[in-house]
């Protein structure tokens, strides 16, 4: 299955993926209107470290995902293709998933009332992962590695 992979050697730490992610999932068609003067809550997050090390982290869509097993509401599930998705109508915001994800890739949403995670841009109107599409250095790719 195709998943988003990250190569930290290529990551410049520009955080553009975070903005593109926030915009893609804002439901808005105008990026400026969607993001200007707003705190963003992207589903992909860049870590910045010493010695110019940067990398983005988002859902790994694990084959045997612990978040799916741990969800008290049955709000997390796997699609037929293998993507891990969340039904936010069912999520009660207990954040058990946040406390089990080994990658720290699932997080409270902007209101803090439900969890949010990357669904590979299948749950918005973009059609393909926007973090990948807009990464200026191709540090983020969308590939089938098994």
């Amino acid at each position: 299955m195709k998943v988003v992979y990250v190569n930290e050697e290529w990551c410049l730490g520009c955080h553009l993926c975070e903005y593109e992610c926030a915009f893609a999932n804002s439901g808005d068609t105008d990026m400026v209107r969607a993001l200007k003067d707003r705190e963003i809550f992207p589903r992909i997050r860049v870590e910045d470290g010493e010695n110019d090390v940067h990398f983005a982290v988002n859902c790994r869509h694990c084959r045997d995902a612990l978040c799916v097993k741990s969800c008290i509401a049955g709000a997390l599930s796997k699609t037929e293709e293998g993507a891990v998705v969340i039904d936010r109508e069912k999520c009660v915001g207990c954040f058990t998933c946040v406390a089990v994800c080994p990658y720290g890739a699932i997080m409270p949403d902007a209101e803090g009332k439900a969890a949010q995670k990357c669904a590979l841009c299948t749950d918005n109107l973009m059609g393909e992962p926007q973090c990948v599409k807009h990464c200026p250095n191709r540090a983020i790719v969308f590939e089938d590695r098994g």
Binding site: N7, V53, C62, R63, G104
Partner: peptide, 22 residues
């Protein structure tokens, strides 16, 4: 702060660059 930065670069490379079982 819990993060992947604290792991060795090689370990992180596996976490972010290969399909994960869990």
């Amino acid at each position: 702060a819990p993060g992947l930065m604290a792991f060795a670069s090689k370990v992180r490379g596996e976490k972010l660059g290969t399909r994960r079982e869990r």
